[in-house]
């Protein structure tokens, strides 16, 4: 299991965050699937080094927004830039600054844990990928299963390996789509601590989550989406959990 705890980290101060270049800049971002608008006119800045939680009911557009931020599918309208670079034609260097934990693990079930990590490490040109892979497996508590094929893993183990894959290249921006989904309590704590550690290292973290209270504890800022629009955008420390929950329910 991951050794660090959420209490051991010291996130960037608000002053440090606001002076940095935005990691993500969205202007009128909209996304349409067939005739249905899934994202509508989203304008947000996510400062570098901040920790943002995206909340919303099912179908609110959280996952679509993360996919768009990950440049996996282009926005139908609006502008998106990451670290000051337009996402319309992203360079490989820009892609290398991103990591993503998705609904699906993005792993090869017939490869072993270490083979998966080394493969992705090489794609990202990580130096000494085997060593890095072993370090990551150690951090997510899977070092003893390094040689086991992924299809023999439990849901929680797959999720932890997926997190290791996303962090193999030490991304500056981590997009985590419901990273706690399907995890038991110790794994939730371990993943929370890992995300907090990343944030403390100055990385930008954007996660989607269904648990309002947990999001308020973890993140600095909470944005509620409803039917593809931004319903509210607040500092987590100023937010009232019941009020946010009402906004999420709509």
């Amino acid at each position: 299991m991951i050794a660090i705890t959420a209490e051991s980290v010291t996130p960037l101060t608000d002053a440090e965050i606001t002076t940095a270049t935005p990691a993500v800049r969205m202007r009128g971002l909209s996304k349409r699937y067939d005739e249905r608008w899934v994202l509508r006119d989203i304008t947000l800045d996510v400062p570098t080094g901040s920790y943002l939680a995206l909340l919303g009911a099912n179908g609110a557009g959280k996952s679509t927004l993360l996919h768009t931020l990950a440049m996996l599918s282009p926005a139908t309208r609006g502008e998106l830039s990451l670290f000051g670079e337009s996402a319309a034609r992203p360079s490989p260097a820009l892609r290398a600054r991103l990591g993503m934990i998705g609904h699906q693990p993005m792993l090869y079930r017939d490869l072993s844990a270490i083979e998966n990590l080394v493969f992705f490490g090489k794609l990202y040109d990580v130096s000494r990928p085997k060593q890095r892979a072993m370090d990551m497996l150690e951090r997510v508590g899977l070092a003893d299963r390094a040689l086991s094929v992924v299809k023999t893993f439990s849901r929680g183990m797959v999720q932890r390996l997926s997190i290791a894959r996303a962090l193999m290249h030490a991304p500056e921006l981590l997009l985590a789509d419901e990273p706690f989904s399907g995890l038991d309590v110790p794994s939730v704590q371990a993943v929370s601590a890992l995300l907090a550690e990343l944030h403390a290292d100055g990385k930008t973290v954007i996660l989607t989550n269904h648990d309002v209270r947990q999001s308020l504890e973890l993140a600095q800022r909470v944005v509620v989406l409803g039917r593809g629009r931004v319903v509210s955008d607040r500092r987590a420390q100023d937010a009232n959990a019941d009020e946010v929950t009402r906004e999420v329910i709509g």
Binding site: L98, M106, L123
Partner: peptide, 18 residues
Amino acid sequence: AVERHDGALAGLMLAPID
């Protein structure tokens, strides 16, 4: 189909490769 299992294709598409 190997790429479609568990969203592995998305992992490839995220990587800094053409």
